[in-house]
Amino acid sequence: MKYAKWTVLTLIALIVFGFFHYTLPQHDIVRVVNTYQERQDLNDWTRIFWAKPDDQSTGLINRDVQFIQTVKANNKPMVYRNEDTGWSWPPYFKFDTANLQTEAEDAKSTAAAPEWVSVTHYGWRIEYFSAFPNAISIKRVEGPDVTIIPWFNIFFFVFLGFVLLMLRRMWLQFRERSIDPVLADVEEAWDSVDQRADEAAERARGVWGRFRAWLGTWKGKPRR
């Protein structure tokens, strides 16, 4: 039972962590080497790794997607997709895919003369499922070693903590003011039921006692 509890809790923690890790923005320092556009099939479950940029696209089983090919400072490749999120999930409200593709095109550089950019993105690169993170914005940076402070994520988690704390306080207030008095009433009612039961038992004993006494009157008086 103990193991089952910890398994479930670990699973929930992993799902919550995974959800935030997938959805919240992250920054990569990369150098853009190329951009391309490729037709993607969207007719199986890996559909969840692609955006639903507009209403028409939900009915399509394939469509063109733009990609940005980059290389990290450690020479590992990273490929981003470049899709509108529009008004759908996740709520980045990205409508400027074409502009972003232009900026990426403009930021291309070679290994000999690298120009480093910080790509803000969300999502995971999963080679096996052909899943790509979605690039949100591109910003030029000094070099491959600059530190980027994730202001949005800091603000987001502080705000989330505040909301959870507020919900907890609301619940405690509700319990103190609305549930506890009812429970106290129930307890009082139960006590009075208990008391009445005791009194009834007393009375019953009285009746039985009287009956025994009445039976006793039929007994002969002890002979002298």
């Binding site: 209403d55 008004w87 759908s88 709520p91 507020m166 207030q173 509700f174 003011r177």
Partner: peptide
């Protein structure tokens, strides 16, 4: 457009729930 309406409707519902909870809490305090 549908996506925008969906966001607006569900956002409005979520904000209304939050508004009601907060006003009940604040009144109780």
């Amino acid at each position: 457009m549908i996506a925008f309406l969906r966001l607006a409707v569900f956002g409005f519902i979520a904000m209304t729930v939050m508004y009601l909870l907060l006003s009940i809490y604040s009144r109780s305090v």
